[in-house]
Design a protein around this nucleic acid. Structure first.
Length: 732
DNA sequence: GACCAACAGATTTTT
DNA sequence: TCTGTTGGTC
């Protein structure tokens, strides 16, 4: 393809796309709903559609909005588009909802109760903010667990409901709900005081702004003439509203999604949006993409069989012209260590076959499962990259440094200020900090102002005052240059003056060495960002340009594309990716489906979709496994194979362990146990018990009640912690 | 105010 | 198992 004049004519599109895809690309003027099965070329369709708009319809890239699910997807889309068009398309708006909304909020801060340099609080910061509120107002952590409260707040925000939007009638002042509402109100108040938004706020404020402000809405309607949304099945109410406000007028909107791949309902996503798209917009053109270009026939057959068990779905059946290929392997292992080792062996075999490591992925349900794989891979000297897990930007040393940047760009950010006031330690202890906070609250000023006026605080002793004002002078000095000096320079100055890296480097704790390395990597990443930013904007980025970017970065975005390493990640993180070979480990009830999700039909169906997403990542080789026993933290489990395995025809698998077919899953001890009489239901210290693997033992301690009790048991020469239900009691 | 040891508590998925 | 918190000591 030498030039785009040659490339860009209708024949060209027809030669590159199938008929359905071509419809997606060329119907630019109506609302389009694309129901795109896994591997059906939906990203490809979006890219060609954008190219078509720009080249054939002469639409300016500035007038196109594309929302992707991850930053990485946005980047890839832009790169592939530029390659196709042979020109850079910088003015195109491509990004995640959060990134795009951030940009809008910064532009429109004049209409909002916070300024353009607002801070963005991640989950940890949300929690510590809530903890302070609990402390100050005396809320009880037991009756109002922080996590639970945050989830509830998030639910409301995703539905665009601030505390003042929630009506409650007939509830008395002390009711649980009234207290919750009170916490929510205080939390929101604190956020605004700090000039900070949490992740949900970014969507909420954008949606509210577009809903309530005609001028702003018209402005973005006029700008975004063409709107495309990827992964529409995972959008929530706030996201729906944002799209609807922008595209509801001109109706030139194309959404792409697959209800079978909806896996984010815990984040407020609702299938409603994709199921009712045809009602939300006028004369919608629906297009189904069912031809799969990714997986071999046998893999697809399993995928179809698994998802067929879901009831709430648009029925569709993927088909492929690819060869049938190998059957998915189903393997059983003794325990999670053997699972990791044997999978590692299999990986080595694939490598010998010439499959590059980066084309091999190990997927699991929970991050905790990654540890065993890490050690197995280290032992085998196979390089790996973990996607997710303990995230880079969540690390203490990185968050400390980021907190400095937040404070410098937003002096109202008390949370970040508290994080760094004694980090690195400079002798400002809890007592002094409490006095500072007290003073700030009393005089209704920000913490930073309190620090500036430290001399006026009578409660503080002279040494404390001196340290605080030194800290303050340092911040003020940096603050003066923060709107002038490039981000990279600022970061380097801070790191050097605080001696952050050298401080960690001089330690002999390996963890500190790792911290020093992380800080070096952080500086590198700022420099990479700066280079990229310079190319796009022809100026050096400031801290204010860097922070909104980094706040929305995830670990997903950090994996080096070309690095030849095995990818380890959760099933959630695997969405949108594809690999030559995929291993899915831990296919056991209570893990997949996860025990938190086994109590209702809807969440089981979501878990099944998660499994489906995992299966459909594989191009040629799929390997599934479960174990007979698994240790999680300090407890042994004896799992049963996932119901998702037993509910499909076992002939869909190649059973790697000969006679150990899925047709006869290991018996569930709980079910086969004799009738237990009332008096036997509870475990007692000293009681004799029988365990199918360890034999006879004596209970040493009991934690909890009944079948769920956690027992410490002595089996002759070894101790084990075991859940009650996995035991058989000895006849007494 | 800094440091350390003991202890409790939580362990689903993420922009 | 691991992390964060608390309570005690110097």
């Amino acid at each position: 393809m030498g030039s785009y004049s040659l490339a860009m004519n209708n024949n060209f599109y027809a030669s590159q796309l199938n008929e359905r895809q071509l419809e997606v690309v060329t119907d630019t003027e109506n609302p389009v709903l694309v129901l795109a099965g896994a591997g059906s070329g939906k990203t490809r369709s979006l890219i060609y559609r954008t190219a078509y708009l720009i080249k054939e319809k002469q639409v300016h890239p500035w007038n196109i909005l594309i929302v992707t699910f991850t930053n990485k997807a946005a980047r890839e889309l832009q790169e592939r588009l530029e390659k196709l068009l042979n020109i850079p398309v910088r003015s195109l708006w491509v990004g995640t909802f959060h990134a795009i909304c951030c940009r809008i909020l910064r532009f429109e801060s004049a209409h909002l109760p916070f300024n353009a340099n607002f801070s963005i609080y991640d989950e940890d910061t949300q929690k510590s903010l809530l903890k302070k509120i609990y402390k100050e107002y005396g809320f009880d952590k037991q009756s109002f667990p922080i996590n639970n409260i945050l989830t509830r707040i998030s639910r409301y925000k995703n539905k665009l409901m601030l505390p003042e939007d929630i009506k409650f009638q007939g509830e008395d002042k002390d009711s649980e709900f009234a207290t919750f509402l009170n916490i929510y109100r205080l939390y929101q108040q604190q956020l605004l005081l700090n000039q900070a938004l949490d992740f949900d706020d970014i969507l909420l404020w954008t949606a509210k702004l577009l809903l309530n402000n005609n001028t702003v809405r018209e402005k973005y309607r006029a700008q975004f003439q063409y709107v495309m949304i990827d992964e529409y099945q995972d959008t929530n109410k706030a996201q729906f509203e944002i799209v609807h406000q922008i595209a509801g007028g001109h109706q030139r909107v194309c959404v792409v999604g697959d209800d079978d791949q909806a896996i984010y309902s815990f984040r407020g996503a609702s299938l409603r949006n994709i199921l009712e798209f045809e009602k939300d917009y006028n004369s919608v053109h629906s297009i189904r993409l069912e031809q799969n270009y990714r997986s071999t026939g046998n893999i697809l057959a399993l995928a179809n069989a698994v998802i067929a068990n879901n009831r709430r779905r648009h029925s569709k059946e993927l088909w492929s012209e690819l060869p049938v290929g190998d059957k998915p392997v189903l393997a059983v292992y003794e325990n999670e260590i053997e699972e990791a080792n044997r999978i590692t062996d299999a990986i080595l075999k694939l490598q010998r076959k010439g499959i590059p490591l980066r084309e091999i992925a190990v997927l699991y349900r929970t991050n905790a499962q990654s540890r065993v794989f890490e050690s197995a891979l280290i032992q085998a000297e196979i390089p790996y990259s973990i996607v997710g897990g303990v995230q880079f930007y969540q690390r203490k040393e990185i968050k400390d440094l980021l907190a400095y940047l937040y404070v410098l760009s937003n002096l109202n950010d008390n949370e970040s200020l508290l994080r760094i006031i004694n980090e690195p330690a400079r002798g400002i202890g809890q007592t002094s900090i409490n006095r500072l906070i007290g003073f700030a609250n009393k005089t209704r000023i920000s913490l930073f102002s309190a620090i500036q006026n430290v001399e006026a605080i009578e409660e503080l002793g002279n040494p404390a005052k001196k340290r605080i004002s030194e800290f303050c002078l340092m911040l003020e000095r940096w603050q003066q240059s923060v709107s002038r000096k490039p981000a990279l320079e600022m970061v380097k100055t801070i790191v050097e003056e605080l001696e952050l890296i050298s401080h960690y480097q001089n330690s002999n704790d390996p963890q500190d060495i790792a911290r020093a390395e992380n800080l070096v990597e952080f500086v590198t990443s700022v420099s990479e960002f700066s280079e990229h930013f310079y190319q796009e904007n022809e100026r050096e980025p400031l801290i204010a340009d860097y922070l909104p970017y980094v706040a929305l970065q995830t670990d997903l975005d950090r994996v080096k594309e070309n690095m030849d390493s095995i990818r380890l990640m959760t099933l959630h993180n695997a969405k949108g990716l594809e690999f030559e070979a995929v291993f899915i480990a831990g296919l056991e009830d209570e893990l997949l489906p996860h025990r938190m999700c086994m109590n209702n039909q809807d969440s089981i169906e979501e878990e099944r979709r998660l499994f489906y997403v995992g299966i459909t990542r594989a191009k040629n080789y799929l390997h599934l496994s479960y174990t007979k026993s698994r240790r999680l933290y300090d407890t042994f489990y004896f799992p049963v194979p996932s119901q998702f395995l037993t509910e499909v025809d076992s002939r869909l698998f190649y059973h790697s362990d000969g006679d150990f077919g899925i047709a006869q899953p290991p018996k569930r001890i709980k079910k086969t146990n004799k009738v237990i009489t009332e008096s036997q239901k509870y475990y007692k210290i000293g009681q004799k018990v029988f365990h199918p693997e360890y034999g006879l033992g004596v209970i040493l301690s009991v934690d909890g009640e009944g079948e769920d009790a956690r027992l410490t048991i002595s089996f002759g020469n070894r101790l084990a912690k075991i859940i009650g239900r996995y035991l058989m009691k000895n006849e007494e």
